[in-house]
Design a protein around this nucleic acid. Structure first.
Lengths: 195, 195
DNA sequence: CTTCTATCTGAACGCCTGTTCATATACCAT
DNA sequence: ATGGTATATGAACAGGCGTTCAGATAGAAG
């Protein structure tokens, strides 16, 4: 039998990506089979190929969608001119955005090595754009004398690395609320980049 | 044919772990086959089983050895009582130790999900011991009034996350020397934990 | 009521997987 | 020289892999 009920094109596609997302995040891209993904969706493996040309593209699309969502969400903010306010906003945005998408974040930097060179370059470019938006805040603050860092590029990477650490331990309903976490990290970031 | 020349037990074992280390770091545990590892060593896949009961144990041993080396190296330091000096020493130690072992570091926190629950618990305990040694520095500094952080546990994780970021971008012979990198990060850490 | 098309099945393809084991060899000790 | 042992081979096992495709079905369109 086939097409067990109704037209499913607009439903099955997202469900496949959803299943792939969770499985890739939990077990890793290489350890997950197309049959596992299909099983989670409730469909045979062959059906997946109506929605993705191959397994690699499935991974790529997940990462690309995530990075584009990130950039779009950040661009949509009403941004501050003042470097200190802008940095505070960045910290809060980054923490909240990433905590809402733990699986995507996990994949986005655990599975980079499983991308083809072309796909890797694509994702890297998006990541760079995001990092650059933080660096430009730091540079402006540096020029205005509000910040004092030895190297804005390194400071950028250090801040992002520090913030990314949050998703490895934060659990909603834990000891600290989201607001408190944000406050604690903003405190550390602010002091780290100030004289 | 077998045993193409001489007794190899003391040579082949380390060579297998070396090959596995590089391959796991580059392609990920799940994406590397026993035949690939054997090929790099110059033996057939079956020969690997004279040195490891299975693939999982090979990964586990690499991670365990790494974590134990880390703890031993840190314990062997002549440590300072003064929290500020101790923290500075920790930062320098952490950066140098990890930059010397990029493959081990990569594996040690990319392949955690490929460990069996028992092996995972083992590695996690070692990691916790290392984190605790940093947290005790921060706590002592907090009590003495030299440091000022909202939460020593979070500060611990934030500092380690920030320092770990170094290995993702540092290339020896690059724009900054190791000493400079150490200095830049110490600056940021120091400011982040000070009032 | 028929036709058409989107969607899915289920089997098949060739290849790769971790692991085991009988067998063969090279060296060491006697 | 002989026997024993450590070490390696190479074939085999059962099963899983990504991917393809002819054929079946369900619903939409006329």
């Amino acid at each position: 039998m086939a097409r067990t009920q109704g037209s499913h094109s607009d439903i099955t596609g997202p469900r496949i990506r959803e299943a792939a997302l969770g499985l890739f995040a939990r077990h890793g891209f290489a350890a997950v089979s197309m049959r596992q993904i299909a099983g989670e969706v409730g469909v045979q493996a062959g059906a997946l190929y109506n929605y993705t040309p191959d397994k690699q593209s499935l991974l790529f699309r997940l990462m690309q969608d995530h990075m584009q969502d990130l950039l779009t969400a950040y661009d949509d903010l009403d941004r501050f001119d003042d470097p200190k306010k802008a940095l505070c906003q960045f910290v809060g945005f980054h923490i909240r955005f990433h905590l809402q998408r733990p699986d995507e974040v996990f994949i986005a930097y655990m599975e980079l090595r499983n991308l083809t060179p072309e796909n890797f370059a694509d994702i890297e470019a998006l990541r760079r754009r995001y990092e650059d938006s933080l660096e430009s805040i730091l540079r402006k603050g540096q020029e205005s004398g509000q910040f004092s860092v030895a190297d804005t590029k390194i400071a950028t990477l250090a801040v992002i690395a520090m913030l990314n650490g949050v998703i490895t331990w934060y659990r909603s309903g834990g000891r600290l609320s989201l607001d408190e976490v944000e406050q604690v990290y903003w405190d550390m970031v602010r002091k780290a980049v100030t004289a």
